[in-house]
Write a protein that binds this DNA or RNA. Structure first.
Lengths: 251, 251
DNA sequence: TTGCTCCTCACGTCACGTGAGGTGGC
DNA sequence: TTGCTCCTCACGTCACGTGAGGTGGC
């Protein structure tokens, strides 16, 4: 006649702690005790426990179960809410899985943003860090352009830039800048928004973006690299202007 | 030069509490302070925070992130583990959604087990409770059979049984038992395991199942209903024997 | 003086899980 | 006496969220 705590728990496919937890929260009435103080559960308790477990398995929080009419259609609203939450959760988890797959397939690390795994090995540590920051500042289309640029930059000059020592001499800096110039000039032509990055494809404010970008670049690259960047900028801007409007040059 | 706590949090798409939490757990170093005690984050902090957030968004627990080599392939194992967990979660959530849909479509309550929603309105409260208990004791195939039986029981006798008062008189009990007999006899013939329920399609032990079943039935139905059940059992067994092996009768 | 941002505890959330320490019948 | 089951606190888990109470510069 009746079941012990462990028995109802086993029958309901759950644990004694769960049953006791439901007592504490008042979701499940405590049954009568036997002479030695042991709880003796009846069918009503078992059924109630099974109902609670069923709702919990559907993802309904205990607080909602408490205020829920089990049989009635009053539960429909709760169920709709939970269903929407479940759908959103599945969406999120599926996206996470897709990204994990992308990382594993490229045998890349997780220190590169979504969509950049396949070029992880072509980026230096600083590049990967900057790319992470980029991903927070620019929108999808800007990131797509950035991917294309990275894919097209196959020259040895990029490798040279990544490993440029902080104390590189004047000649090294200038020749590297000149080697990189045409590449960057082409990017400026292909992606005009680069010329005015503060006002294009942003997800945050212009000011914040600008400041963050400057701060990130300044913190991630060494003095020589920053110097080369400055030189490249000047060279590429000039080249882009010449190529972009050849009339200026030929006239 | 540097960002405040709110600024790094915003840049990383998270909250100040999250950043502080990572400091407490030692996942993220605290930056230098300005003269007024405010924290001043640098690029290294921002990048580290972005890396942590990325891993968290993929579903990796903080404890694993702490012991993880971000760039290296050492992370692959963690990612595989998490991927399997994500797959399992998606599975569970999808099943939950399917059940919620089933409940909503049948506009049934959640007080009936999976797969029984479409006949929820043909079951009394006691029947629904017993079905919940059944679902814990018997396997899928037994539940399928049970569904078929419930679907075929369309007579008014079932309704009469469900509403039988505890003090029903002798005549009412006997006539109801005789009305139900043939139906149950057919079940005994169609589903032979019913004759020996303790040994067929069980998910728990024979003894436990038997005891639980008896306790549940005894607790869910009134005295008259239990009496009728006993009478039906005798009648149905006899009828099934006659119909099952007609030779006994004709000989 | 008011507002705004920053700071540090400390406690809360959610649904339980995990000991610690003790009892009772064989 | 040993083992086993039951019991009740009380604290732990996970990843933060939420006040409370106070500071500092405009």
């Amino acid at each position: 006649v009746g079941w012990s705590t462990r028995e109802v728990a086993d029958l309901a496919g759950t644990t004694v702690n769960t049953v006791r937890h439901y007592h504490r929260t008042g979701l499940l009435d405590e049954p009568e005790r036997t002479s030695n103080g042991y709880k003796q559960y009846g069918v009503n308790h078992l059924v109630r426990l099974l109902q609670i477990r069923r709702l919990r398995d559907l993802g309904i929080p205990l607080a909602q179960i408490e205020s829920m009419d089990f049989g009635g259609a009053a539960a429909a609203s709760s169920l709709h809410t939970v269903d929407a939450e479940l759908a959103a959760s599945i969406e999120r988890l599926s996206r996470a899985r897709a990204e994990i797959r992308a990382i594993l397939e490229a045998s890349a690390g997780a220190d590169v943003p979504a969509g950049f795994q396949h070029l992880a090995d072509r980026l230096s540590d600083a590049d990967r860090s900057l790319t992470l920051v980029y991903a927070q500042l620019y929108d999808e289309s800007a990131l797509t352009d950035l991917k294309k640029m990275t894919e097209s930059d196959t020259g040895g000059a990029d490798v040279e830039f990544d490993s440029l020592p902080a104390d590189a001499d004047e000649a090294a800096r200038q020749s590297l800048a000149e080697a990189l110039g045409p590449q960057i000039a082409q990017h400026l032509i292909d992606y005009p928004w680069l010329a005015d990055p503060a006002n294009a494809h942003l997800t945050k404010g212009t000011r914040v973006t600008q400041d963050t970008f400057v701060e990130a670049v300044a913190g991630l690259y060494n003095e020589a690299q920053l110097d080369v960047m400055g030189r490249v900028s000047i060279i590429a801007t000039r080249l882009a202007a010449e190529r972009g409007s050849p009339g200026d040059h030929e006239g």
